[in-house]
Amino acid sequence: MIVAGLTGNIASGKSTVATFLRRSGALIIDADQIAHDVVAPGQPALEEIRRHFGDDMLTPEGLLNREKLGRMVFEDPDARRRLEAIVHPRVSAEIDRQMARIAENHPDAVVIMDIPLLFETGRTEGLTDIIVVYTPEPIQLERLTRRNGLSPAEAKARMASQMPLKEKVARATMVIDNSGTLAETERQTLAVYRRLARKARQ
């Protein structure tokens, strides 16, 4: 089994690359999905968020109001750090549980740890490779405003809250350029998977 990290910044196309890797045969540990799961109704993290940030961070149905909380934490670094302190340890623990299950049941697998904050949360230890999905900032900004319905100022604030993408590229062992067509991104992703699969067989 080999384990590679997959990261990028918001609206860089990381989820698209993860989908292509999964289709190729990789097993994906999806930190975004885990982060959604740990704040589901009935989970301790959701109650802790409610206590710290207020009842209005929940919808009338008792779900996390992601849009409202997102606006708050992207405008307030202290609030963002507090939210991360609530969510990240729980996400990390679930990643470790999933990794242990894969190691037991699929010892020859290519495992991709799909983690947006891979560098920021210090999850790089033990990875055979780090894949960074790159998109130039103007394209990233355009995609983010269109996809999330944000103003340019709101989108720039969210982009600025993450480690600069160029810095991530400099620390990567593999880079997928997602500034072209979907077919071009898929071709690059398949080439990356084949390299990882060869390593897994060695």
Rank of each mutant, 00 (worst) to 15 (best):
residue 127 L to M: 02
residue 143 R to C: 09
residue 149 G to S: 08
residue 120 E to K: 02
residue 140 Q to V: 04
residue 147 R to I: 08
residue 124 T to C: 06
residue 135 T to E: 03
residue 151 S to E: 11
residue 131 I to H: 04
residue 139 I to M: 13
residue 151 S to L: 13
residue 138 P to Q: 02
residue 134 Y to Q: 10
residue 141 L to S: 05
residue 138 P to H: 04
residue 150 L to T: 00
residue 129 D to P: 00
residue 149 G to E: 09
residue 119 F to E: 07
residue 129 D to R: 13
residue 145 T to P: 06
residue 129 D to F: 03
residue 145 T to A: 10
residue 120 E to D: 05
residue 135 T to V: 15
residue 133 V to A: 02
residue 120 E to G: 04
residue 147 R to N: 11
residue 128 T to I: 14
residue 141 L to R: 13
residue 139 I to D: 14
residue 139 I to P: 02
residue 129 D to C: 03
residue 142 E to A: 15
residue 133 V to S: 02
residue 143 R to L: 09
residue 143 R to H: 10
residue 144 L to S: 07
residue 137 E to N: 06
residue 137 E to A: 12
residue 151 S to A: 13
residue 141 L to I: 07
residue 144 L to C: 10
residue 136 P to S: 10
residue 147 R to C: 06
residue 132 V to F: 05
residue 140 Q to M: 04
residue 145 T to D: 08
residue 141 L to V: 06
residue 132 V to P: 03
residue 136 P to W: 08
residue 152 P to H: 10
residue 121 T to Q: 13
residue 148 N to Q: 14
residue 133 V to H: 03
residue 146 R to S: 14
residue 125 E to S: 14
residue 130 I to Y: 00
residue 149 G to F: 08
residue 121 T to N: 13
residue 149 G to P: 05
residue 127 L to H: 03
residue 132 V to C: 06
residue 130 I to Q: 01
residue 132 V to M: 07
residue 122 G to K: 11
residue 141 L to C: 07
residue 148 N to W: 07
residue 128 T to F: 08
residue 128 T to Q: 15
residue 124 T to F: 02
residue 136 P to E: 08
residue 142 E to G: 10
residue 133 V to W: 01
residue 146 R to H: 15
residue 129 D to M: 00
residue 138 P to Y: 02
residue 138 P to K: 04
residue 123 R to W: 12
residue 130 I to S: 02
residue 134 Y to A: 12
residue 133 V to Y: 02
residue 121 T to K: 13
residue 119 F to I: 08
residue 122 G to E: 11
residue 124 T to D: 00
residue 141 L to A: 05
residue 141 L to F: 06
residue 144 L to N: 07
residue 132 V to S: 04
residue 130 I to E: 01
residue 150 L to Y: 12
residue 142 E to F: 02
residue 119 F to L: 10
residue 137 E to K: 13
residue 136 P to H: 08
residue 147 R to A: 10
residue 149 G to A: 08
residue 128 T to C: 15
residue 121 T to D: 10
residue 136 P to T: 10
residue 136 P to I: 09
residue 136 P to Y: 09
residue 140 Q to I: 03
residue 150 L to N: 01
residue 148 N to E: 15
residue 130 I to P: 02
residue 123 R to S: 12
residue 121 T to H: 11
residue 145 T to H: 07
residue 131 I to L: 13
residue 128 T to L: 13
residue 132 V to W: 05
residue 128 T to D: 13
residue 123 R to I: 03
residue 125 E to F: 07
residue 131 I to V: 15
residue 150 L to Q: 01
residue 149 G to Y: 08
residue 126 G to K: 04
residue 120 E to I: 05
residue 143 R to N: 09
residue 128 T to A: 15
residue 139 I to V: 14
residue 134 Y to G: 02
residue 144 L to W: 09
residue 124 T to H: 03
residue 129 D to K: 06
residue 127 L to G: 00
residue 136 P to G: 07
residue 134 Y to C: 03
residue 137 E to H: 11
residue 137 E to S: 06
residue 151 S to M: 10
residue 135 T to F: 01
residue 136 P to L: 11
residue 120 E to C: 05
residue 138 P to L: 00
residue 119 F to K: 07
residue 140 Q to S: 01
residue 127 L to Y: 03
residue 149 G to D: 07
residue 128 T to M: 12
residue 126 G to D: 00
residue 148 N to L: 13
residue 121 T to A: 15
residue 139 I to T: 14
residue 137 E to I: 14
residue 121 T to M: 12
